[in-house]
Design a protein around this nucleic acid. Structure first.
Lengths: 219, 219
DNA sequence: GTCTATAAGAAGATAGAC
DNA sequence: GTCTATCTTCTTATAGAC
């Protein structure tokens, strides 16, 4: 990689550094605002105020409000991708979901953004519709792949492929739903309820009882 | 009941009838709009246009936009209340959930309204926040009550009360989540995925295998 | 890069005519 | 009961100064 400051034998004192930092600040602020108010109701003004610039600066950076949404979604995806280790396979993938929920509990904005945009993009003309749908397809097919792997390796009981998809879909549905309940009532023992239910899925798939956590959600 | 038209021995040609019908039309239209766009983004203009009146007529009827939301929520609650038969107890209550999902599938607006408002009211200052939270508490405690009843009658295995609440919460979470997936991708076999997952809960609670439906979701 | 100023429109709500 | 007309505020986006 060539350092941008040395291109053309002339040292360019960088406005770039500031621009990149600003861009990141804006995306983070926009994520918060879209998470709280949705894309339609969240305003550029609000985001600009949080960052400490004017709304005009935002459209300058991202072209339009939808451009900003795209940047937020890309950022979200990249974050999520970077977070899950690539060497986890089969049943371990599902055991790890407990960590994902733990992470979400500590980063409320993430799950808020996901659920808010998901519900909102239910509408056919929502700009994030395709993104949400593709993401769900990806998540489900990843889950299916891992459960199939576990089955073929003999770690899980035999399940027909259609049943595997139904199992994976209902597991992720439960995960989303519990997180929604937690958003509505933060007093809920999110990790406890989730990991117990997760344990029931693992128990059913493997026949092993040692995968069901205690009632406090600890192993 | 006294007929309003006969009060005071004089026949009053009723503007009431029209008013009541209008009111119902407005509430139905508002339910659709709030379901599609959420409360914050859904506009009085849009609703007024659907009904064929001006926005001023709406604020005349309901005082404010929030007043209209209250009417929508009350209407929704009353509908739901009227729909579930009161003589269903214990395990039957959960078996009936399959019918509820079937009904929701045929009335997409209902589940759309619920999920849209739930996600939206995640925000502390949303006017429907308390309503959504109370409704969830009611749903969960009703479920807990029925499962406890089943347990005490010997229809379900013994489960500690805290475990019962976790089971009920994860079941309703799964139900919401599957419905969300269906809203995002209407091609999904909603009833199939749900009733299979429901069957797994019933199977776990009772030990009976005959409660798990076939892979096509039929009994 | 960020600003001010402003365009062009849509929002909720109110006043008063009919 | 519903209308028209109007008020105030807020929206996204653009033009041009610095």
């Amino acid at each position: 990689m060539v350092d941008a400051q040395e291109i053309g034998a002339k040292v360019v004192r960088g406005p770039y550094q500031n621009g990149i930092r600003r861009r990141r600040e804006i995306i983070e602020s926009a994520s918060r605002v879209f998470a709280s108010y949705g894309f339609v109701s969240g305003s550029l003004r609000q985001i600009a105020e949080e960052v400490g610039v004017t709304p005009a600066a935002l459209t300058r950076h991202f072209g339009s409000k939808e451009g900003l949404l795209s940047a937020v979604l890309e950022n979200w995806d990249a974050d999520a991708e970077a977070r899950n280790p690539p060497d986890v396979h089969g049943l371990d993938y599902f055991v790890r979901l407990r960590d994902a929920v733990l992470y979400n509990q500590a980063h409320r904005g993430l799950i808020e953004l996901f659920l808010t945009l998901s519900a909102e993009s239910t509408h056919p003309e929502h700009p994030a519709r395709q993104f949400v749908r593709n993401r769900y397809d990806r998540v489900v097919s990843t889950g299916v792949q891992h459960l199939r792997e576990a089955r073929d390796a003999g770690d899980a009981v035999w399940l027909a492929d259609e049943l595997i998809e139904a199992e994976v879909r209902s597991l992720f549905a439960m995960m989303d739903g519990v997180q929604l309940q937690w958003l509505i009532d933060p007093g809920l023992d999110l990790v406890g309820v989730f990991s117990r239910a997760l344990g029931q899925y693992l128990h059913r798939w493997t026949g092993r009882a040692d995968l069901v956590p205690g009632q406090d959600g600890q192993d």
